[in-house]
C-alpha cells in the first residue's frame, strides 16, 4: 500500500472514531420523538398540525413571488432606458428596497401602514405578502435587467427592422429569450421566498414556522419539532427545485439544438 493511502485511511478512521465518540456524549435518551411520531395518537395530531401550515406558506410565497416578478419587471424596464433620469427611477427603487431587512419591512407594513389612513386595514396574510413581494421585487428587477441586457443587440435591431414597437419587441423577441436565461436565478428567488416566508410568523401568520413555535411552547420539545420543521422546508424546496429544473429542461427542449 502506498503511503498516501495509508495516511488517508488513518485520517478516515480517526474521523469516524471522533464522530462516534461525540455522538455518545449527546443526550439521546432525553429525546422524545413520540411528540411527532406517526405511531402515536398525539404524534399524529401534532404532525398534522405542523404540516397544516404548508398551505399558508405556499399560498403566501407564491402570491408574493408572482407580485414581485411583475413588479420586478416593471422596475427593470426603466433601468434599461437610454435616459439617465429614467434609469434613476430604477436605481433609487432597487437601492432603497434592497437596503430594508425583510423583517423590518414586515413590521413596517403590518404595524406602520394602517396608521397612515383609517381605511387601511391589512390582515396578517396580505401584510406578509406585500412585505415579501416588495423586498423581493428589487432582486427580481436586477435579475430581469441583467437578463434583458444579455440579449444580443442584433436581436433588437432585427425586431426594429420588422417594425415592432417597444412592447412588441419586448413581448415577442426579448422576453422569450431572456426568460430562458433568468430561469435559474428566478428559481433561486422562489426558494429564497419560501424560506423568508417563515419571518411572517412573527406577526402571527399561521404558517409552518408559527405552528412549530406554538407546538414547542405547549410541548417543550424544540429539537424534535424544529427538526420536523427543517424537514418540511427541505421537502418543499426540493420539490420546487425539481419543478424549476423541469421548466428549464422544457424550455431548452423547445428551442432544440
Amino acid at each position: 500500500m502506498r503511503l498516501s493511502s495509508v495516511i488517508g485511511w488513518v485520517c478516515f478512521l480517526a474521523f469516524v472514531a471522533l464522530v462516534s465518540f461525540l455522538f455518545k456524549q449527546l443526550n439521546w435518551d432525553d429525546l422524545a420523538w413520540y411528540v411527532v411520531s406517526p405511531e402515536t395518537e398525539t404524534g399524529r395530531r401534532n404532525l398534522w398540525f405542523l404540516v397544516g401550515g404548508v398551505k399558508y406558506t405556499l399560498l403566501m410565497s407564491f402570491t408574493a413571488i408572482i407580485i414581485s416578478i411583475v413588479l420586478g419587471l416593471l422596475i427593470a424596464l426603466p433601468g434599461l432606458s437610454p435616459s439617465p433620469w429614467v434609469r434613476m427611477i430604477n436605481r433609487v427603487y432597487v437601492e432603497l428596497v434592497r437596503a430594508v431587512p425583510i423583517l423590518v419591512l414586515i413590521f413596517w407594513v403590518y404595524y406602520g401602514l394602517p396608521i397612515l389612513h383609517d381605511d387601511i386595514n391589512i390582515n396578517v396574510f396580505w401584510a406578509g405578502v406585500i412585505a415579501l413581494a416588495l423586498s423581493d421585487s428589487a432582486f427580481e428587477a436586477e435579475i430581469f435587467r441583467a437578463g434583458i441586457q444579455s440579449i444580443d443587440r442584433g436581436q433588437l435591431e432585427a425586431a426594429d427592422s420588422i417594425g415592432l414597437g417597444y412592447f412588441g419587441r419586448l413581448r415577442y423577441v426579448v422576453l422569450p429569450q431572456a426568460i430562458r436565461r433568468i430561469l435559474p436565478p428566478l428559481g433561486n428567488q422562489l426558494v429564497y421566498m419560501l424560506k423568508m416566508s417563515s419571518l411572517v410568523s412573527v406577526i402571527g401568520m399561521e404558517e409552518l414556522t408559527r405552528r412549530a413555535n406554538e407546538l414547542v411552547v405547549s410541548t417543550y420539545r424544540p429539537l424534535e419539532i424544529y427538526t420536523v420543521l427543517v424537514l418540511e422546508y427541505l421537502v418543499l424546496i426540493l420539490i420546487v427545485s425539481m419543478g424549476v429544473r423541469y421548466l428549464e429542461y422544457r424550455l431548452r427542449a423547445n428551442e432544440s439544438i
Binding site: A158, S161, G163, Q177
Partner: peptide, 18 residues
C-alpha cells in the same frame, strides 16, 4: 411604419433563435 417599407438584412442574420 416607414421601417416596414425599408427591409434590412444583417451581416449576422439576426434571426430570432427561439
Amino acid at each position: 411604419r416607414i421601417r416596414t417599407d425599408v427591409g434590412m438584412v444583417f451581416q449576422q442574420f439576426n434571426l430570432f433563435p427561439h
